Computed example of a mutant assay.
Amino acid sequence: MPELYIGLMSGTSLDGVDGVLADFSSSQPHVIAHASAPMPDALGAELLALNSSGADELHRAALAGNALMRVYAAVAGELLAGSSTPREAVRAVGAHGQTVRHRPQEFDGTGYTLQLCQPALLAELCGIDVVADFRSRDVAAGGQGAPLAPFFHRAMFGRAGETVGVLNLGGISNITLLRADGSQLGFDCGPANALMDAWCAEHKGQPYDMDGAWAASGNVLPALLDAMLADPYFTKAPPKSTGRDLFNRRWLDAHLAAIGPAAPADVQATLADLTARACSADVLRYQPDLRRLIVCGGGAFNRHVMGRLAALLPGAQVASSGDSGLPPLQVEATAFAWLARKAVLREKLHLQSTTGARGARVLGCIYPA
């Protein structure tokens, strides 16, 4: 009998919402349907603005959460309609929400992570139980609250007796190392599409650098690259996680100011190389014998970054997750469908090796329809 869950994800890139309808009745997840919706321009701008303190931000955040849930509900509706699936057949919807602040372990020792999400509204709109707030329990248990996808990566991409790397290139990059002995390591590497997309939008009027062609036309600026890579985050030992709280336009502008005028294409080339070098350095530091790196997220379509990763990791086969059975834009949404199922079944995840949490915990809160 099918075991159906919906996963909905809007990532740091702020480019849109991805959703999947997945069946978990067999040993490996099976995606029945995939749907996506672009982020409305005004909502995307507001979500980006809410990454920083501003006037009346509690009011604005609440309304932005409502608006985001309407986009989520539309994607869920498209999944059901496109697959001719009645909503009663779906056990739950896993809704990640939009991260606007991520400061684990800071300030009072516990810190916080904040995803804008109105799960009660989403349950009302969809008529399906909703699981949300996946990260807070991990933070409460002393963890980073991110990344959470590594647990799903093992279920989807793990192979007995083989070491496999899974690299997600979303707004932020994160790596999962699934080791042959059954252990795993996962953490955020640094910025990926967030900075590249912002720079491309400003200078080219395009939401992203198609295939990385603009970056490929420029020349890497060694002084800028070295200065950015000198940020302490890159050499900090895991568990660690990051986001726009650190890697934002202010961070980039500070480095640009230090080197003086630069051609926009050269800055784009340097940002692309920053992503490739940070990720490859983490692979070489923690799994130098890696032979297979599976890449997902929007960055998997950036041919220039993929080429740089392959050049920097000559011993590894670098390939899209599509070659391993799940297209790049479906991986994270499927991960949150998988996490929703774990919450419904009250199954604990052993988080310590990835987030640093004190022990196994059930992640997510359930909002009945």
Rank of each mutant, 00 (worst) to 15 (best):
W199D: 03
A311R: 12
Q115L: 07
G205M: 11
E332P: 00
C200Q: 02
G7F: 00
T270R: 02
A357R: 01
I172W: 03
A276C: 09
A180Y: 12
G243S: 15
V17L: 08
A337H: 05
R303W: 08
T235F: 08
Y72R: 03
L309M: 13
Q118H: 14
M228S: 05
L8G: 00
N174K: 06
G307P: 11
I294Y: 06
S280R: 02
F24T: 08
W251I: 04
P38V: 11
A227Y: 00
V139K: 01
A132E: 00
G145Y: 03
S324R: 02
V100T: 15
L274H: 02
V283I: 10
L50W: 03
A258E: 13
Q184C: 10
G297W: 05
R346P: 00
V31K: 02
V344R: 12
A213W: 03
L195S: 02
S324D: 15
H59T: 14
P40G: 12
A141P: 05
P288L: 04
A319Q: 11
L8P: 00
A340V: 05
R361C: 14
L80H: 04
A369C: 14
A272H: 02
A35S: 07
A92C: 13
A132G: 02
N51G: 15
V305D: 07
D323I: 12
